[in-house]
Design a protein around this nucleic acid. Structure first.
Lengths: 228, 228
DNA sequence: TAGATTGTTAATCGATTAACAATC
DNA sequence: TAGATTGTTAATCGATTAACAATC
């Protein structure tokens, strides 16, 4: 599969791939692209760990999943790592529809931060007559009712859900009925979906809560010294 | 060890608050508000677990951190839970500045999904002359250079970083120099900051990677049966 | 060879899950 | 009381950290 040698092939073993590892892959990928652009061809786990403030052992274990073999005393081939990590992250052969061209939705249309991961929104939908058939961020906005006929067999369809919290479940139901494979949920609503539909929740609220507690902890330790 | 001294009572013991618990708090809060609006006054851990698809034991352990005592056979007081969870999540006494009024930045200004957490952007800054001194989302955009003079002792200042990846570190350096306490980082750049500055990374790329792998795993198990 | 780095196996740590006692 | 739910202690599971062998 990946040229590098032995038949049994490198390539990712998705079954055992751990969630924290998956979430670190984009960080590796970005760094590797930067190193690559600067003309480097090989990098050590120590170097990566240093740049990303990780433990070198974590890096080695994560990279082991790519199947790319490192060379002792030298490190890992940057192009090979890039190739293999992209294979995991790339949403190849998927069609992505954005639902809800409001504030957050239009931001995602205009957002280029995910381009390097092969991310591309294939069409934009909305239910608001004021938005339907207008151009937002250079993209035509389709009527949501047109979505079902744009879902055909042979591809994986991902819906990015950017509607108001109140309409989240109703819209999800419509998408599920239309045959969507996955929902990337940017609302704060807990979606109820059948087992065969994948949901990825993106919760700003969770991040804000985390930040808030971090700050309070810091303030706490700053004030009451001599504790601990 | 954490004396927290006399006052005990209810209230959160921040020291031992776990990260997964913190990230679940907003989900509890949203549900509790909904139950409260529907006229309920008390709720069991089983009911919460059912609504949020969690294990009831997880819910009880999480709620234990709030210090609110449940009543056997009945459940927990909804208003009390709301009060205590809000104490953890609310960014009280903090001043929040948004840096970068591009696509993502303006989306965050217009986004109301965090209102219930007491979230409010106090001022908006940008470096682009085409944006400075314009009104975006009903908010005046200040010149970034004006930020330092708007940081004064006695408050905690949070910067929401929505600038292009390439200018992320430079902008962070400027914010740190100005005396910011925390950076909510929406860029894909790994920020290098001194120890006393809190960073909260919000990575869309991590979420996309997670979704991508989930989908591939599902497709894999659907296709190759009996493999291993 | 000597040295540095990979790669794997074992130990620790933390979070979830399970079991059960306490209580209204 | 009986029953249901809380709350705590123990067991399991998973991820990180440590130790060390393999290798170029």
């Amino acid at each position: 599969v990946n040229g590098l040698g032995g038949g049994d092939g490198a390539g990712i073993n998705e079954t055992s791939l751990k969630l924290p590892t998956i979430r670190r892959f984009p960080r590796y990928l970005k760094l590797l692209h930067e190193l690559n652009s600067s003309g480097r061809d090989i990098v050590s786990s120590a170097k990566i760990a240093d740049e990303l403030k990780l433990d070198p052992i974590v890096v080695r274990k994560d990279l082991a999943f790519t199947g790319v073999a490192g060379k002792p005393k030298l490190g890992f081939s940057i192009p090979h790592l890039i190739e293999e990590i992209e294979k995991v992250i790339y949403t190849e052969g998927t069609v992505t529809y954005l639902i809800g061209a409001g504030e957050l939705g239009s931001a995602l249309i205009g957002y280029s931060g995910l381009d390097r991961f092969g991310f591309r929104i294939n069409a934009v939908f909305d239910i608001d007559p004021g938005r339907v058939n207008t151009i937002i961020q250079n993209r035509h906005v389709f009527k949501l009712e047109q979505l079902p006929e744009m879902i055909v067999p042979g591809h994986t369809f991902i819906a990015i859900l950017c509607v108001p919290d109140e309409s989240a479940q109703n819209t999800a139901d419509l998408l599920i009925k239309a045959g969507i494979s996955a929902i990337w949920n940017f609302t704060n609503t807990e979606l109820h979906v059948p087992e065969n539909v994948t949901v990825q929740n993106e919760s700003l609220a969770a991040g804000l809560a985390e930040l808030s507690v971090k700050l309070r902890k810091k303030a706490g330790t700053a004030k009451l010294q001599g504790d601990e």
